[in-house]
Simulated assay, not measured.
Amino acid sequence: MGLRTRTKVIAGIAAGIVVVAGVGVVVGPRLYADAVNGSAAAAPSLSPSAAGTLDAASADGTWRSGSGSYAGYRVHEVLQGQDVTVVGRTKQVEGTATVDDGRLSDATVTVQVGSISTPESARDAYFRDTALQTDRYPTATFRVTKPVDVSDALDGSTQDVTLTGDLTMHGVTKPVQADAQVAVGEGGTVQVAGSVPVTFRDYGVEAPSLGFVTVDGKGSVEFSLALQQ
Rank of each mutant, 00 (worst) to 15 (best):
V99F: 11
P119R: 05
D34V: 06
T118I: 13
T90E: 10
T173I: 01
T134E: 09
R136D: 05
S209I: 01
Y70S: 13
D179W: 01
R4A: 15
D179P: 11
S157A: 14
Y73V: 15
R6D: 08
E186Q: 10
T168G: 08
G114H: 10
P208S: 10
A59H: 03
L225S: 08
V111S: 14
V176K: 14
V213C: 05
T98S: 08
T85W: 03
P147G: 04
F127A: 07
F127Q: 06
T62Y: 06
S69F: 04
A59Y: 01
V26Y: 03
A15I: 12
S220M: 13
S117Q: 15
V150E: 00
T53M: 00
T145E: 07
P138M: 12
A226Y: 15
D202E: 14
R128Y: 09
L154S: 03
Q228G: 07
G12M: 01
V84H: 11
V111M: 12
G24Q: 10
V93T: 04
I13M: 13
V93I: 01
V184A: 15
D106V: 10
S45Q: 10
A15T: 15
L79E: 07
P208D: 10
S195P: 06
H76N: 12
F212T: 08
R6N: 08
V190M: 08
G81D: 14
V150G: 03
Q80W: 10
G211T: 12
L31F: 03
A15G: 05
H76V: 13
K8W: 04
D166K: 05
S67W: 04
E94A: 15
F212Q: 06
V18C: 00
P147E: 10
P208E: 09
R128F: 02
V75T: 15
Y203D: 00
D83C: 01
E120F: 07
M169P: 00
A43R: 15
V150M: 04
D202G: 06
T145F: 09
D135L: 08
A178Y: 08
D106W: 05
T173R: 06
V148Q: 13
R123K: 15
T145C: 10
Q133P: 00
Y203N: 06
A226P: 05
R6H: 14
T110R: 15
V190P: 00
R103S: 02
F223S: 00
I10N: 02
T5R: 04
V184W: 12
A207K: 06
G194E: 03
S224P: 03
T173W: 09
S39Y: 02
T173V: 04
D149W: 08
H170Y: 02
M169D: 02
P138T: 05
G68V: 13
L163M: 02
Y203E: 01
G24K: 14
G95I: 02
T118E: 03
P138N: 10
T96C: 12
L167K: 05
V213T: 01
G156Y: 12
G22D: 04
V150N: 04
S47E: 11
G72C: 03
F223R: 00
F223I: 01
L210F: 11
V84P: 09
V113G: 08
V36L: 11
V19I: 12
Q82L: 05
T158V: 10
T62K: 11
A226W: 13
V25G: 04
I10F: 01
M169R: 08
M1R: 12
